[in-house]
Simulated scan of single mutants.
Amino acid sequence: MSGVPGTEIERSNYTLETLYEHQEHDFVVDTIPHVIAWVPSRDVAPDPQPFMFHMDVASPGGTEPRSMEIALAWNMEALERHDVDLSAKVARLRSGRSVDRERVTENAAYGLALVAISVLMPGRRVITICKGEAPDFLLDATPGALRGVEVAGRSSGGLPALRSIRLEKGPRLVARRDIAEVHISLWCAAPRVSELYQVKP
C-alpha cells in the first residue's frame, strides 16, 4: 500500500444502508446480500465491524496513488426495511444453497464499487449496467462519450492480483474511442484491499 510511514491515512466511514440514498434501489438491493456474505472472513470467530478496506486511489499522469481506508459497516434491521428477505438471502449465499453461489465475489464487487462511487464521486449515480461489454457501470450513457466504471473482485491474492487485472483491462478501455471517462474499481476480500483507478481521460 502506498503512503509515507508515520502519516495518518484518510478514512471514510460508510454504512451499507446509506447506499440506498446514493444509488439506484434495484442495483443496491441486488448486491447487498453478496457484500454481506463475502466481506466478513470465514474464520470461526467473525470479524467485528467495521470492515476495513485499504484502498489506493489514482488518476492518470504518473502521480503517486492516494492511500485511504474505507470502514464498511451495516445494520441488518435498517437494511431489512428495504429488503425483508435479506437475512435469508445472506444465509443461502453463505451455505451455498443458491444458484448465485458462483457469483458472490462478482456481485459483491459490484456492491462495493457502488460504495466507492458514492464515497469518491459524490453525487454521481450509476444509471445502467452494461451487458457483455465494458465498462460494467455507466454513469453517463451519451453515445460516443460513455462514462463509467469497470468492476472486478478476487477472493484472495491482494494487491498483486488486483494490479494484474488493472494491467489487463486498462489498455483495452483506453483504446475504446466511444469511452470519454472510465475508472476501474477492484476489490479483494483476503486481505481486504481495493484500488480505484481512473484510466481515462
Rank of each mutant, 00 (worst) to 15 (best):
G3I: 09
V4I: 15
G6C: 02
T7A: 10
N13Y: 12
T15E: 11
L16K: 00
E21P: 00
Q23G: 01
F27W: 02
V29S: 07
D30V: 11
W38K: 00
W38D: 05
P40R: 03
S41K: 12
A45T: 15
Q49E: 15
P50G: 08
M52W: 14
F53D: 03
D56W: 07
D56K: 11
A58E: 08
A58D: 08
T63W: 08
P65G: 03
S67E: 13
I70W: 01
I70T: 05
L72Q: 02
E77Q: 14
E80C: 10
V84E: 15
V84L: 15
A88F: 13
A91W: 04
S95L: 04
R97F: 14
S98F: 05
T105I: 14
G111Q: 07
A116F: 14
I117T: 10
S118P: 04
R124N: 13
R124M: 09
I129D: 07
G132V: 04
E133F: 09
L138M: 03
R147Q: 14
V151F: 01
G153K: 08
R154W: 04
S155K: 12
S156W: 13
S156N: 14
P160V: 09
G170K: 04
G170M: 05
R172A: 14
L173E: 04
R176C: 09
R177F: 10
D178G: 08
I184T: 01
S185T: 05
L186V: 06
C188G: 00
P201L: 12
